[in-house]
Amino acid sequence: MKILKVSIIIVLFLVSAASLIMYSFYRYNNKETRTLTDADRKKISGSFIKLSQGITHYELGGPENGQPIVLVHGFSVPYYIWDPTYDFLVKQGYRVLRYDMYGRGYSDRPKVAYTQDFYNSQLLELLQQLKLQGKVTLAGISFGGAVVTNFSCAHPDLVNKVILIDPAYDMKKPAAPQYFTLYNEAVNSDERVKGQMDDFRYPKQHPNWAKLYKPQMRYEGFRNALISTLYNYNNNGRASNACLNSTNKPVLLIWGKFDKTVPPRFSDSIRSVLKTDFFQVDDAAHLPMIEKADTVNAKILSFLKA
């Protein structure tokens, strides 16, 4: 009996010690030390609007009577990912909207499940409140490609054309419990930052990219938004692209030849069920609209004017 008690005490001690070590490791690596407030937003460029699930950070440029285009960013990099495209299209006279999805950039980070309906609702409300005139062309990069595809299926009457750049295909729920993935994300946040450089063919040509990414990580809810998306979005690439095909929208599909994040082989899977104008960008990886901005902008402009 005495041996059993000693064993239990030892086990409890080891568990407590391990928990303390894990918590200390979490506290040391945790980047989310602030709450996003109105005071923070006053220092940020762009505009803000209150939607049903919180405040959304956006930028709207170009003439009010210009053809409306909406740029949807990827999984974790907010709307600055579209800088070259946004500036170009505004100068061309288009009415261009870009925004931070909930949980990213300087938009709110509500504690809800980040599902397809959740992302669709944010975009729908944004379009309604900003009162863009006419049907919109939607452009999505990476995860934004999945968002754009699914929104177009849900609201085809609002969409004119669709532009997909290296779009996400299948998004399957991780096998590990969600709390484990959240903890792993917290203690490996530096890896998340470093991983952004893998999106480039020549990362050394973009020395400030990681620096741009870090500020959003300071605010509570960023990590939860990413992990909730992984567990709740559940995109089926074949089904969603087949659905988009049924809407008969003109689709431009752009892909970086050296993309390692979403390899070009997925373009074949998409084109097997979706009619597209396919454009491969040589000497570019996951972000061809940045690495080969002139080439991609010219193709986008041609597609818009067709």
Results as ranks from 00 to 15, higher is better:
Ile165Gln: 00
Arg238Thr: 15
Gly66Thr: 05
Tyr169Phe: 15
Ser24Ala: 14
Ala298Arg: 14
Leu301Asn: 09
Ile163Thr: 08
Val15Asn: 07
Lys161Arg: 12
Gln133Met: 00
Gly93His: 06
Cys243Phe: 04
Ser142His: 08
Ser107Ala: 07
Asn30Glu: 11
Gly62Asn: 08
Lys292Glu: 11
Gly62Tyr: 07
Asp259Thr: 00
Val6Met: 12
Asn245Arg: 03
Gln67Met: 08
Gly140Cys: 01
Ser76Pro: 12
Lys43Pro: 01
Gln53Tyr: 01
Met22Ser: 14
Tyr169Arg: 11
Lys161Val: 03
Asp294Arg: 10
Asn235Asp: 13
Pro177Asp: 09
Ala113Glu: 15
Ser47Asn: 15
Ala186Leu: 08
His155Lys: 07
Leu89Pro: 05
Leu127Glu: 02
Asn29His: 05
Tyr79Ile: 07
Phe75Gly: 09
Trp209Glu: 12
Ser121Ala: 09
Lys214Asn: 09
Arg223Trp: 08
Ile44Ser: 10
Thr37Ile: 05
Ser7Asp: 05
Asp38Tyr: 02
Gly54Arg: 01
Phe75Asn: 11
Phe25Leu: 10
Ala17Val: 13
Asn245Ala: 15
Leu4Ala: 12
Lys43Leu: 12
Pro156Ser: 02
Ser269Glu: 12
Gly74Ala: 02
Leu130Trp: 09
Gln178Pro: 01
Ala225Trp: 10
Arg98Cys: 04
Val11His: 04
Phe151Lys: 01
His73Trp: 02
Thr85Val: 09
Tyr183Met: 04
Met197Val: 10
Ser76Trp: 11
Glu291Ser: 06
Lys214His: 05
Gly62Arg: 05
Asn65Gly: 00
Leu123Lys: 02
Leu230Arg: 13
Tyr106Val: 04
Met289Gln: 15
Asp283Cys: 04
Arg41Met: 08
Val162Phe: 10
Thr149Val: 08
Val72Tyr: 00
Thr37Trp: 06
Ala284Asn: 02
Tyr219Thr: 04
Ser24Asp: 09
Ala186His: 06
Met217Asn: 11
Ser45Glu: 15
Arg223Asp: 01
Tyr179Ile: 14
Ser7Glu: 05
Arg223Thr: 13
Met101Gln: 14
Gly256Ser: 02
Arg192Thr: 13
Met217Tyr: 13
Ser272Pro: 04
Tyr106Gln: 09
Ala168Val: 03
Lys305Phe: 01
Thr247Ile: 06
Asn120Phe: 04
Lys135Ile: 03
Thr261Ile: 10
Leu123Arg: 00
Pro110Trp: 09
Ile49Pro: 12
Lys31Gly: 08
Val11Phe: 13
Met197Ser: 08
Asn208Thr: 15
